[in-house]
Every structure is written in structure tokens, then in C-alpha cells.
Design a protein around this nucleic acid. Structure first.
Lengths: 137, 137
DNA sequence: ATTTGACTTGGAGTTCGCTCCAGCGGATAT
DNA sequence: ATATCCGCTGGAGCGAACTCCAAGTCAAAT
């Protein structure tokens, strides 16, 4: 996807550029233990390796699935312990919650569509479904 | 739906009971101007009328559509100004955002399913799609 | 030599929608 | 009379995921 030189150090700005995360977010992820602290250069600045970059990109992949940061932490912990079953289980658990989310939003949409379809009737008082009514001042 | 005596005053606990909102939430909604302050009894306690109850139930209907509180405020303002077009427009706008939400979650689900389907191959190194890979320590 | 710019830190602030709390007054039950 | 509720207020806290800031260091460019 990107041209990555494995023998180079990357600044935080470069990592931000490559991953689409902001430098602040990168430091934040580091602070909460989501990504490993990179090496530091002479003057204390972060020097990310290509390996660091790879790991951060990986985190963004999980984030793309809207996995909560806490769950990503769990995933990474399982990954580091080479617990493939747990990794799979975490992904699958997450899938279940995503499906629940979709179900809820879909129900919401249906409700909204109902309100929209019956809007005129409700306004005219031809329908007394209640959902769009409340008494006037 | 509920038996409501229009000539009675309701305590905050009764309103909470009827609407499923907590007393704290009712006071909060009042504080942010989402619901009109009810009358107060002798000792300063809130005395909601059946009309108040109706309006609060109406707010819960909008909240059931996951409409943000700010948008509900706008809706109520439009309603009070009898601006039906704006009311309709706000609902429709909200429908669009709900549809966007569903689209995003659906894309997320597809991505997750992809990861799950190819989990074994990625683990085995038979697939180099990248999305589930990151270099090891 | 000086300005500009990138980076550092710890910590505060943001948004959303509540939820909880201390410290009070007043009502109800025994 | 006392214990127990219910309700009141203003304000703090929460959780998620950032985002911003001041004050400092350091390096590069002019």
C-alpha cells in the first residue's frame, strides 16, 4: 500500500501521515498502552520503526471495524500470547455486537419511516397513533 | 396506552414510572430546556400535569428514534412555531443520518466477516492481505 | 543570530447523555 | 416524636476517544 523503508526511522508526523491518525492520537494510544512506545532519538523524539508502523496500521484495521479501544487492547494481548482462539473469539464477539447495532439502527429506521409516512395524517388529526402527537400549549 | 387522569398532578416519580426516564433525567431534560418546567406545589416539588406528561412522552418517542437531544430541541421549537415543514424536514434529515449510520455499520460488518472468514489463512500465512497481519515482536 | 518549525510533557478540556452526590426541607408512618 | 421517605439544588463525575494547550527543548533555514 505504502512504500516503507524497513531501515528508516519515522517521525511521529510521518506515522500520522501514513496511518491517518493524528500525532496526538498516536501519543494517546501509546499512553493507554495500545501501542508500544517507540525508540527515542538523541533529543528525546520518537523514532518509529517500520515494525512499529506495521503494528499501528494493524490497530487502525481493528479500529476500522469500530472495535472499542479496550477490546483492541485485549486482542493485542491475546495476539502477543499467540492465543489464536481468543483472537478469533474476540473478533466474533465483536461481530455479534456489530450485528446488534445494525439491528437496532434498522428498527430505528423503520420507526422513523413510519413517522414520516404518517406525518401528514398525524398532523391532520386523521390518525391517533400517538407517536407524533402531543398536546398543544 | 396508560390511564391518565387529566385533572391530577403527577410527581416526578410517577412521570418517571410512566415514561421510563429517571427522575434525574427528567430534571436534566428540564435543565437543558428540553421540557418545560412544570408547576411547583406548596413545598417546591414538581407537579406535572397530564399535558406535561404528554409532552414528555412525545420527547421519548423522538428519543426512541435516537434523535440527538439538540435535534429534539429544534424539533420542539419548530413544533411550537407550528412549522410543519421544518418538523418534517428535521425528521427526514434524521432519517438520512440513520441510513448513513446503517451503511457504516453494514460496511463494518462486511469487513469483520471478511477478517473472520480469512482468519485461518492469514494466521497460516497463506494469505497476505495485510489486514490481519502485523509483524511479530 | 534569530526566527520558524517540529517535537516533548502533563494535564485540562470537549462532546453526549446522563448519573450520582451532599446537604438540605418537608411529608408520611408508627 | 422519630424514623424513614421523597424531593430539592448545584455541581461533580463518568465513559469513550480524542483534542488542545502551555511551556519547554531542539534542529533547520535564512
Amino acid at each position: 500500500m505504502y512504500r516503507v523503508d524497513p531501515n528508516r526511522a519515522y517521525t511521529i508526523a510521518e506515522i500520522a501521515e501514513q496511518t491517518g491518525l493524528s500525532p496526538d492520537t498516536l501519543r494517546y494510544y501509546e499512553k493507554i498502552g495500545l501501542i508500544r512506545p517507540p525508540e527515542r532519538g538523541y533529543s528525546g523524539q520518537r523514532e518509529y520503526s517500520a515494525i512499529d508502523l506495521g503494528k499501528i496500521v494493524f490497530v487502525t484495521y481493528l479500529r476500522n471495524t469500530r472495535m472499542p479501544l479496550k477490546k483492541i487492547q485485549e486482542y493485542i494481548a491475546a495476539y502477543n500470547e499467540q492465543d489464536e482462539e481468543k483472537c478469533y473469539a474476540l473478533l466474533d464477539e465483536h461481530r455479534v455486537s456489530v450485528e446488534a447495532e445494525i439491528a437496532e439502527w434498522t428498527a430505528t429506521l423503520e420507526l422513523l419511516k413510519y413517522k414520516l409516512e404518517h406525518f401528514q395524517e398525524v398532523k391532520d388529526g386523521r390518525l391517533s397513533k400517538g407517536e407524533l402527537q402531543h398536546e398543544s400549549e
